Simulated assay, not measured.
Amino acid sequence: MTLTELKYIVTLAQEQHFGRAAERCFVSQPTLSIAVKKLEEELGVSLFERSKSRVYPTPLGEKIIKQSQVVLEQAGAIKDIVDAGKDQLTSPMHIGAIFTIGPYLLPQIIPELNQLASDMPLYVEESYTATLRRRIRQGELDAIVVALPFTEADVVTQPLYEEDFVVLMDSKHPLAEQESIKADQLVEHQVLLLGEGHCFRDQVIEACPKLQPSLADNQGKIRSAAEGSSLETLKYMVASGLGITVLPRSAATPSLLTNDLLCIRPFAGEAPKRTVALAWRASFPRLQAIDALREAISNSGVGHNL
């Protein structure tokens, strides 16, 4: 068996679909299918049950896949040891950030990193917290920027900054006449939020409990953006007069297209906020690269440094 084959079965167990697993592994579906079948024949057991709609591990397959994940993580640790013997600020750095942080933080820190570590190639990606969690455990990312709470075994998490939430609305909206907005007032209006799966949606509802659909009038006035939408999409929806929304302050700045259409109001009293953190594997040996990334974020001016 090979590490590649182990990666295939771990990915297939996660996706429960040959096509999606092959896409994630950057191979054709027949290639992945043949490799999985070959490993099953070598081991003399069936790792997966196959149906028309999905593929899922057998009870024995689950144990083998769990151990395969450990093997892949240990193989990644060997690579980390090799990287530690090199110049820590010249090897590529792979960084991930959640969708509601990446577009607003990354453009600020990349120029800073160019000053602090000009010879360190930077690869960045945006995704959901759950995806970033998996990818850092598998060694596919070196560090991730997420919103707390975030805990993961063998992963170090360090809070970086706090960021207030603000209310974004059409400049002609009735609430625009107020200097600040009470959280309880939001339930009286059409509130636009990200779709299910975005942690920022959950944070907003936690900060403004009356936005829970079951508690709002007529089963809730919340209208969710389409699945996978971004904060930028919400801003355009607000500019179109579809409602108001709550955003982290870094995301609330209107664009050139919406500058005259939107206005921002703070929350009255103590504003709801989120804490943004940097996370990396405890075994990751390039602490100079982590320090450079942390300093770049601190210098970015986004949020209130902790």
Rank of each mutant, 00 (worst) to 15 (best):
F26Q: 15
G195K: 01
L293F: 13
I136C: 07
E41W: 01
D164C: 03
L278G: 01
S240K: 02
T245Q: 08
V204Y: 09
F18A: 06
L192S: 06
Q138T: 03
D83K: 10
I65R: 06
L215R: 13
P209T: 01
S33A: 15
K86N: 11
K7L: 12
R137D: 13
P30S: 09
V276E: 07
I297D: 01
D80P: 01
R134G: 04
G269M: 03
Q288F: 02
G19W: 01
L6I: 07
P272R: 11
T131S: 14
S127K: 11
A279C: 13
A296V: 08
T157K: 07
R265G: 03
M1W: 02
G61C: 08
E5A: 15
S240A: 15
Y56S: 12
A239V: 09
Y56C: 00
G220K: 04
T131H: 10
G139F: 06
L6A: 08
G301A: 07
E125F: 06
V70L: 12
L234H: 05
R133A: 13
C208I: 15
D154Q: 14
M169G: 11
T258D: 06
K38Y: 03
Q115A: 09
H17E: 06
D202H: 08
G241E: 01
S283M: 09
R133I: 00
F200Q: 01
A147S: 11
R50L: 10
E152N: 04
S240N: 10
L211T: 01
L60N: 14
E5C: 02
E62A: 14
M120T: 10
V204M: 08
S51G: 12
I244M: 10
S224W: 02
